[in-house]
Amino acid sequence: MKKPLFQNTNVMTGLFFTALALLLLFVWIPLDSDTGLIEKVRRQVAIGDALAPTVAALFLLIGGGLLMLLEGKSDTPPAIDAASVKFVARIFAMLVLSFVLMRYAGPLAVQVVNAIQGNDLEYRLLRDTAPWKWLGYVLGGTLAICGTISLTEGRFSLRALVVALLAIAAMIAIFDLPFDDLLLPPNGDL
């Protein structure tokens, strides 16, 4: 049995977007645009940078208002299952962790090798050299795929790990091997 997060999601959604629209109209847009709704340039009036976001905020305001007024008493508001939201939050956190691992695994490995062998290698110079260029992608990507499968199935399985490794190998074969000009993550940043 699903446990709803809110009793009436339409009212809550309408309220949230109305508040967001008001925040945009009275705080964010005026404080974060250099020109107003209209501006005078060399004695000519032109549309300012604040006008377009104001129109966007009005869409939100009208939408939020209509949602509260006309659909607030809907018999079938969307039910939000708190457990599902928590599950997606866990998936999201795991993906963030995977990409952090992807970002730092390569440079960290180079530092470890430097410390052990007394080399003076730089990851930046190795980012297009195998196997260094694949290290972060393989580790982070495997964690992303295997972790997502495991979270979804509620258990870790060897099958999840094999699928992840095969998928990563296939992605390297698709994106990296045939193209000299493509860089797998995170090598474009380093």
């Binding site: 990507g141 994106f175 493509l182 993550p185 474009g188 940043d189």
Partner: peptide, 18 residues
Amino acid sequence: PVVLLLTLTAIYVQETRL
């Protein structure tokens, strides 16, 4: 999950910024 990483990789190789 494979589709998810494939999509993220596809976006990255085009823009090369984390």
